[in-house]
Amino acid sequence: MIDLPGVMDATWPAAALHRAGPWLVREGQGGGKRVSAASAEAPWQPADIALAEEAQAALGQPPLFLLREGEEALDAELGARGYRVVDPVVAYAAPVAQLTAVPVPPIRVFSIWPPLAIQTDIWAEGGIGPERLAVMARTTSDHTALLGRINDRAAGSAFVALHGDTAMLHALHVLPEQQRSGLGAHMMRAAAFWAQDRGAINLSLVVTRENAPACALYASLGMQIVGQYHYRMK
């Protein structure tokens, strides 16, 4: 059983964590919803929602909650207060041994830290800017960046980090003109080899449901859906 919340928070960390009554409020500093959302860590009452809203306002962040499976009551309460569903997400995972059964061709994917300038450029093309690079830089668990090459050029970049026996891949982006070349699959397998070398059992990731090409890639590798969540935002 993968500790999905623990892996997510450890491998893609918020700048700071704050407590507000029953809520864990993440300080994202522009790093995206995953590092900026509040989540319930203890039993809550409807009046407690204001505590999270006040804490997020103090951080200069909009009211944003992360809703996991089993939190239907909170989901309904937020919906009644005018919070809309944003970015439904699914989590995929597979044993690293399954992904490393097929070797990565030579001169395809390299593990590099800190990232090269070309990787920063590739991420920028995919909308992964300085604030998300800062998330990678503050990760304290074992981590690396992956540079993918195809057709004699650098064309893909990703970040992978380890928590316990599970590695999680983040920020995978392949340049549009090089997509459907197989590079994404090579980079996933390279992430699994990196994780395997560090004793990991599983490789995981999260992706929005609407990203059909990415979901198709992960399914083609035999990865299984192991969880889901969504956000509520005013």
Rank of each mutant, 00 (worst) to 15 (best):
G31F: 04
A38R: 12
A20V: 12
R19T: 14
A20C: 12
G21Y: 02
G31E: 04
G28D: 07
R19N: 03
R34W: 07
G28C: 12
A20T: 13
A15Y: 00
A15G: 00
A40H: 01
A38D: 02
L24D: 00
P13V: 11
S39G: 13
V25H: 10
A40C: 15
G31L: 04
R26D: 00
R19P: 01
P13E: 04
S36A: 14
K33L: 11
R19W: 06
G31V: 06
A40R: 15
A37N: 11
S36L: 10
L17I: 07
G31I: 05
R34I: 07
Q29R: 15
E27S: 12
E41I: 14
Q29E: 15
V25L: 09
P13D: 05
R26I: 02
A15M: 05
E27Y: 08
V25Y: 09
E41S: 12
S39C: 13
A40M: 13
L24I: 12
W12R: 01
A14N: 01
A40Y: 00
A37D: 11
A38S: 15
G21S: 10
P13L: 10
R19Y: 00
K33T: 04
A40K: 07
H18D: 06
L24T: 13
G30N: 05
G28Y: 02
G28E: 05
R26T: 01
A38L: 15
G31T: 05
R26Y: 02
R26M: 03
L24N: 02
A14T: 01
G32H: 05
E27A: 15
W23L: 00
P22Q: 03
Q29D: 13
G30I: 05
E41T: 14
P22N: 05
G30T: 04
G28L: 09
L24Y: 03
G32T: 02
H18A: 06
A15H: 07
A38K: 13
L17F: 01
P13K: 10
L24S: 03
R26K: 15
V35E: 08
Q29W: 05
P22E: 02
A16L: 06
V25W: 07
A38Q: 08
G32A: 07
A37C: 14
A14S: 09
A37S: 15
W23V: 02
Q29F: 00
H18E: 11
W12D: 02
R19E: 09
V25G: 08
R26P: 01
